[in-house]
Simulated scan of single mutants.
Amino acid sequence: MTTNAPLILAADIGGTNTRVALLDATSLRAQTVTRYQNAKSSGLEDILRHYMDAQGAKPDAVSLALAGPIENGSGRLTNLDWAIDTASASAATDGAMGVLLNDLQAQGRALPFLAPQSLKGVQTGDPSSNEATCLMIGIGTGLNVAPVHRVGGQTYVPAAEAGHISFSARDAALGAFEKDLEGRLGHVAAEDIMSGRGLERAYRHVTGHDLAASDVMALCGQSDKDADTAVGLLVRALGHFCGDMALAHLPLGGIYLVGGVARALLPFMDKHGFLSCFADKGRFSGFMGQFPISVVEDDYAALVGAASYAQERLNVR
């Protein structure tokens, strides 16, 4: 890190929580990481002003990683009724240059900065070049997918909203779950199943009772049969979905699963056949073994990726 590194305020804004931190370029000041519950705030500007008061810093840029679509410097969270724009963020941070990107784009930009110990392998795959396409799949409050392209030393992560494509069941149990949701939701998107809310819906489908996703995972860890069945639905659905996305993007550089639900499901992937579902592609089944798959356990990766994007923008001003 150089002494003239820009000071960047980065925010990772999800449907449930917002994490904010200060970074010297892409070097995270770990002691500055602060988590806010969105339900307790009136909006992002409220969070940014509170954070600025607490830190007493004047950032050069404010970079916002948003769980939702972005257009012309503004966006709206998919799973929370917040509209966010760079002008308001700049005003809330004493005129810092404001930039905005999708949260999964930020995760993709963080790949070059991830420590090896922050990755938990699911499938080894085959070695590939540093220029090979990677794929980020985020599973948390919602679901999204973003390819990561490395061209001439630069990282390009196009935006997507792949969590809202139609879900397609691949076994009888998943088909029954999909039919149940269809009766209640109409259109069943991939996100309706592969997300925190999806886990709650799976438990309700299995038991007829409502339970928070964190409680379902806790019961699953205690070998509760119903919770385990609900988790199995998500793991198998995710395996099939990841396999579809792998064929769509050919990410020989690796598939990276990020988000709280991805990390929670990791210990149960082997038991519930994640890789067999991933490889369930008929005559292309053997082809699926070449893709490395990892779960990212660095909860601050999106902050680093957002800062990397802001640094790039500062350099071209």
Rank of each mutant, 00 (worst) to 15 (best):
Ala227Met: 05
Gln222Ile: 00
Ile84Asn: 01
Gly243Ile: 03
Gly15Cys: 03
Leu185Arg: 14
Glu200Asp: 08
Val296Lys: 03
Glu45Ile: 09
Gly239Pro: 06
Asp224Trp: 06
Ala25His: 05
Asp228Asn: 13
Ala169His: 13
Gly125Glu: 02
Leu80Gly: 07
Ser63Asp: 02
Asp24Tyr: 02
Leu257Asp: 03
Gly196Pro: 07
Ala169Ser: 15
Gly121Asp: 14
Pro147Ser: 05
Tyr36Thr: 05
Val258Leu: 00
Asp12Leu: 06
Gly175Leu: 11
Ala264Cys: 08
Ser276Lys: 14
Val33Phe: 02
Ser63Thr: 02
Val235Met: 12
His50Gly: 13
Gln107Cys: 09
Ser214Met: 14
Pro267Thr: 01
Asp103Cys: 04
Asp12Gly: 09
Gly286Thr: 02
Met217Lys: 06
Val145Cys: 07
Asn102Gln: 07
His149Met: 13
Val99Thr: 07
Arg236Gly: 10
Leu314Asp: 03
Ile293Lys: 06
Glu161Val: 09
Gly183Lys: 14
Gly221Glu: 03
Tyr36Met: 08
Val261Ser: 04
Glu131His: 11
Ala83Ile: 08
Asp180Trp: 15
Gly98Phe: 00
Thr3Met: 14
His50Lys: 14
Gly152Trp: 11
Glu297Asn: 15
Asp210Ser: 15
Ser166Ile: 12
Gly196Met: 01
Ala132Gly: 07
Ala213Tyr: 04
Ser129Met: 09
Gly260Arg: 02
Thr16Ile: 09
Leu104Gln: 07
Thr2Trp: 10
Ser42Asp: 15
Val235Asp: 11
Phe268Gly: 11
Phe274Pro: 08
Asp215Lys: 15
Val261Asn: 02
Asp224Ser: 03
Ala162Glu: 15
Gly142His: 00
Leu143Phe: 07
Pro112Cys: 01
Ala159Phe: 07
Ala302His: 07
Leu111Ala: 05
Arg35Leu: 11
Val231Asn: 02
Phe167Cys: 06
His240Asp: 06
Gly175Cys: 11
Gly98Gln: 01
Tyr203Gly: 00
Ala162Tyr: 15
Ala237Asp: 10
Ile137Val: 09
Lys120Gly: 13
Asp226Pro: 07
Ala262Glu: 04
Leu100Pro: 01
Thr93Val: 11
Met136Cys: 05
Ala172Asp: 14
Phe274Val: 04
Ala218Cys: 11
Met245Trp: 13
Leu257Phe: 01
Leu114Phe: 01
Ala230Ile: 07
Ile193Ala: 10
Ala54Glu: 12
Leu275Glu: 12
Leu44His: 03
Cys277Asn: 11
Gly175Met: 11
Ser276Tyr: 10
Asn130Leu: 11
Ala106Asn: 00
Ala11Tyr: 01
Asn79Pro: 01
Glu45Cys: 12
Pro147Phe: 03
Thr229Lys: 15
Thr155Asp: 06
Asp215Pro: 08
Leu64Ile: 03
Asp215Thr: 06
Thr2Phe: 12
Ala301Val: 01
Ser166Gly: 13
Ile13Val: 15
Leu77His: 02
Met269Asp: 08
Leu64Asp: 02
Ser285Asp: 02
Arg19Cys: 10
Ile47Asn: 05
